[in-house]
Nucleic acid binder design. Sequence first.
DNA 1: GGGTTTACATACAAGCATGTTTGTATGTAA
DNA 2: TTACATACAAACATGCTTGTATGTAAACCC
Lengths: 211, 211
Amino acid sequence: MVRKTKEDAAITRQRIIDAAREVFLVRGVSRTSMEQIAAQAGLTRGAIYWHFDSKTEILLALRERVFLPLIDRMDDTLLKAAEGAEDPLLNIERFLTETIQVLNDSSETRQTYEIMMIKCEYVDEFAEVLQQIANNCSNISLNIKRAYQRAQELDLLDTSCTPEEYAMDTYLFFSGLLHMWIKDPEGSERRQQTNNFIRAHVRLRRKTKTA
Amino acid sequence: MVRKTKEDAAITRQRIIDAAREVFLVRGVSRTSMEQIAAQAGLTRGAIYWHFDSKTEILLALRERVFLPLIDRMDDTLLKAAEGAEDPLLNIERFLTETIQVLNDSSETRQTYEIMMIKCEYVDEFAEVLQQIANNCSNISLNIKRAYQRAQELDLLDTSCTPEEYAMDTYLFFSGLLHMWIKDPEGSERRQQTNNFIRAHVRLRRKTKTA
DNA sequence: GGGTTTACATACAAGCATGTTTGTATGTAA
DNA sequence: TTACATACAAACATGCTTGTATGTAAACCC
């Protein structure tokens, strides 16, 4: 069987992406050849070159498929925190735990993060990917700041720092948390304590903590 | 001139490492060939293969040269914080600012970090490097915890969280800070505010903040 | 139902990058 | 001065990867 129906082709395309993810995770992006991806997908390079122009495009497709929904979700939770919520700090806590929960539940997401973090070199055509990530991060950072500003308006926020300082502190905590979580081996002790650390992080910002 | 004296050979070896760092930074580790390193160093591959068995060994040498002194220095500052200091929180703050200061002052350190963070794929023989880094980090984490415990004994520490929770929070902050600092472009606004954010981070932990 | 396009497989050519081998001139010690 | 080790350069052989070109059978469209 050679020529497939359109739905079959879409499945094939997805199989290529899945195969690439599996091989990338083991061999790294650079050391992975088109032939290896094809073999993992049970295809030949011809199929891959029909669906994608290059290995880079596969990686970009892999990334978009996982990152865009996650970014949307994070923005959504944070926007709620900044606008409607009666307890913005709780929403910030929810933003953190939910993101970790996605990593915990979805191996596709977890593996994709691992590839983007420690199995990929950001040079040449990937420099722009780094730029996109930076943009997403600064957007998250901005929304965190708004949430803290709202918490301040509602008099829920400790007064020793400014909302901007809290926001940067939380953003850096979040960034470090993702790296730790991805790099830690599966089922590590620290992974299980993650929610504790998130709660402690947010608790430290509540005004009533010493009252 | 072919055969050099021992000192000349040591200089050549260092030139190879320097050349590799420059090429790695631009092209990434995987895409860099021995030929390119040799050209950058003004040598041939023969010279490189005499000094190093493989590209991996160059990268390891590059890493050790920068990381080991830095790790030592961080351990040193944190140990002082955990044992002798009359203000452990100030020492934690110093640990953070000093590390950033090193990155700021030494382009060799900064570039090496950038290579290890976003221009290198941790697979196969590099999986163990990741393990070493994890060990260093958990050691740092442990020393931070000790410093916070001492701060608690001296009644300098806010009581809303445990020393362990503070330690993890600071470690994740530190991890995120390094990534932000390295990924941000040179002379970025956020880089300059780094010290402010560090001070805010530590200030939040002082007991007297609401007194 | 015939032509056209689609969705692949197969085959071919060319370019690195690697590792190794060989050559060689100099330092170095006896 | 001899004998060997050192510090490279240069040449060689090999394998891998990429890109492209061609083949082909089935799906799609009118």
